[in-house]
């Protein structure tokens, strides 16, 4: 019989690991189940909320650039705090430091060949590698064109123009085969929105600001009494997996 506790510990350690372990050789999980359901209490794999302090992947310069970018993609206004104060840069840092950043779940074998749009990303770089290269190429371009100023030092309107040009393919940064400037923008936009709208436990959407903005109740569970109340707003605010808005976010 399987020892559920040790299996789960093993898996948790694996998932938490930053190293690029091939999925199939991560440890011996194979086992036979027969005779009764292999269940033991507390064997689940709950998420561990990130510690919002410090940076795991991004360098200080990269942090400044990413914080400036997420604040333009999601600017602060009467609807919500901006991307930076919502935790989007922290979210991106933690994602890049983990299994998303190192592509450990993806097919990463060669040969690498230029693909058609219908075939998706065909570059060799992992997401973390794309950020490292993309942020450097962006800063190189900005410094050369703006007398040494960094992206974060530009006026918001100038930052918007640069981001729009990346989105529209009008700006071509020096990147890598199979990794275009437009794809870099799409990656930034995707991860920023993930951070802004995901459960706060991953570092973004601090205090559930995006959910409050749109009226999404989050991790609520039972709407049976409300499904047939047509054309009426739901009366309760959001909850996260970690609970309500107070008592768990780290202030300051």
């Amino acid at each position: 019989m399987r020892d559920s506790q040790s299996v789960k510990l093993c898996r948790r350690r694996f998932l938490a690991s930053v190293a690029a372990l091939p999925v199939l050789t991560a440890g011996s999980f194979a086992h036979t189940v027969s005779g009764k359901l292999p269940w033991s209490p507390f064997a689940g794999d709950p998420p561990k909320p990130i510690n919002p302090l410090g940076w795991y992947f991004l360098s200080p310069n990269e942090v400044a650039t990413v914080e400036a970018i997420v604040d333009r993609l999601i600017p602060a206004d009467h609807l919500s705090p901006g991307g930076k104060d919502s935790g989007c840069a922290v979210f991106i840092d933690r994602q890049l430091a983990g299994s998303f950043g190192n592509s450990s779940h993806l097919y990463t074998k060669g040969p690498f060949m230029p693909g058609l749009p219908t075939q998706g990303y065909q570059g060799e770089l992992t997401p973390s590698g794309r950020y490292r290269l993309g942020l450097k190429a962006l800063e190189d371009h900005v410094r050369a064109a703006n007398a040494g100023k960094t992206f974060a030092q530009l006026a918001p309107a100038q930052q918007d123009v640069l981001l729009k040009d990346m989105e529209d393919g009008k700006l071509t940064l020096k990147l890598a085969p199979g990794f275009s400037t437009r794809q870099f923008f799409e990656l930034l936009l995707q991860n920023t929105m993930e951070g802004f709208f995901a459960d706060p436990l991953y570092g973004g959407n601090r205090d559930m600001v995006s959910w409050k903005m749109i009226g999404f109740p989050g991790a609520r569970y039972d709407y049976r009494d409300y499904v047939e109340k047509y054309n009426q707003p739901y009366p309760f605010g959001p909850v996260s997996i970690m609970g309500g808005a107070l008592g768990w976010t780290v202030k300051g």
Binding site: S4, L37, P38, G44, F197, A198, Y221
Partner: peptide, 24 residues
């Protein structure tokens, strides 16, 4: 793939997690 059961692997305490289950 792995063994999966409701109480352990689809746990109500953390299943409503769009990033983990729907995006990743």
């Amino acid at each position: 793939g792995p063994w999966r059961d409701t109480a352990t692997d689809f746990n109500i305490g953390y299943m409503p997690d769009e990033l983990r289950y729907a995006i990743r």
